[in-house]
């Protein structure tokens, strides 16, 4: 994310979360936090506990975030925000929590005709390959709960469409033939199958290194019959360092109702 993207992201985030932008320039945002956002971001639980206990008048804070130091007045006080700043990651965390699951309907106008909407499960997540190194692989998979059809990278096909939380007029939901839970299972199974087919050279390298280091360790302690505790500690540490694992985690996802096939324009 570059600074411009960060600026746009923050603005969208605050507007979406009922926090009014009081002042803005290309290099900064001055925001009146909502009560929820103050609680989420400002780390002052005692204040909120007190206000709620005493029925006090809440006074959420204002926040100034500077996204481009060079384009703002030198005197402007605020937090510099960039890709590595803890504040941005706190906001990412909050955003991830708020958009974790959805139940959405494709926003369509049927011109008064009654139309069925078909259910799909969409799952966005990460496959992490980890040993002493790590790499992540993003996936976005859609599965039709009617036909069982699966679409890869579905997010890139739907990101320009619009969805609402209310079912559009004249539309009705088709009942899923596959239950959401089974749908999720199918996706999981599919990911496992794909992983089985991959060539996990990285894991071989890690295991070789693991064996090498353990062998060195054995030579170091070869003369000691009763191995000291450090020997077991070291051995454990080497295993933890190299032992290859694959971790699959979900970023977000949900149940989507489509009028048209997701791949259609």
């Amino acid at each position: 994310m570059n600074q411009l993207e960060i600026h746009e992201y923050l603005k969208e985030f605050f507007i979406e979360n009922n926090s009014e932008i009081l002042d803005e320039s290309p290099g900064h945002l001055h925001v009146q936090l909502s009560i929820e956002m103050d609680k989420a971001l400002m780390n002052r639980p005692f204040y909120w506990h007190y206000i709620e206990k005493m029925n006090g008048v809440p006074n959420p804070m204002k926040l100034t975030l500077i996204t481009d130091r060079d384009s703002v007045n030198e005197d402007l006080k605020g937090e510099l925000i960039h890709f590595g700043s803890p504040r941005l990651h706190q906001i990412f965390d909050t955003a991830t929590g708020l958009g974790s699951h959805v139940l959405l309907y494709e926003s369509v106008n049927t011109n008064g005709f009654t139309k069925p909407l078909k259910p799909w499960i969409i799952l966005n997540g990460v496959i992490s390959y980890r040993s002493n190194h790590k790499k992540d692989h993003f996936f976005s998979i859609g599965l039709s709960l009617i036909t069982g059809e699966m679409i890869h990278d579905i997010q890139s096909h739907i990101e320009y469409k619009n969805f609402t939380e209310q079912i559009p007029d004249y539309c009705f939901k088709m009942n899923p033939i596959i239950k959401p839970q089974s749908g999720l299972e199918r996706i999981k199974k599919y990911i496992y199958e794909q992983l089985e087919e991959e060539d996990h050279q990285w894991a071989k390298v890690a295991v070789d290194q693991l064996k090498k280091d353990i062998a060195l360790l054995e030579t170091f302690y070869k003369d000691e019959e009763d191995k000291p505790e450090t020997y077991f500690h070291e051995k454990e540490a080497i295993k933890e360092q190299y032992d290859p694992k694959i971790e699959i985690s979900i970023i977000n996802g949900g149940l989507f109702y489509f009028l048209n096939h997701p791949l259609s324009e």
Binding site: M1, Y9, E12, F13, E16, F83, I91, F92, D93, A95, T96, G97, L98, G99, S100, H101, V102, L103, L104, N124, V126, K134, K135, D136, H137, F138, Q155, E159, N162, F163, T164, E165, I251, N252, G254
Partner: peptide, 19 residues
């Protein structure tokens, strides 16, 4: 449940953290 905007923002945040 979130909405379409929060869904996209969560996804963006998650994807940005990938290495």
């Amino acid at each position: 449940f979130g909405n379409w905007t929060t869904y996209n923002m969560a996804l963006k945040a998650g994807k940005n953290r990938l290495v």
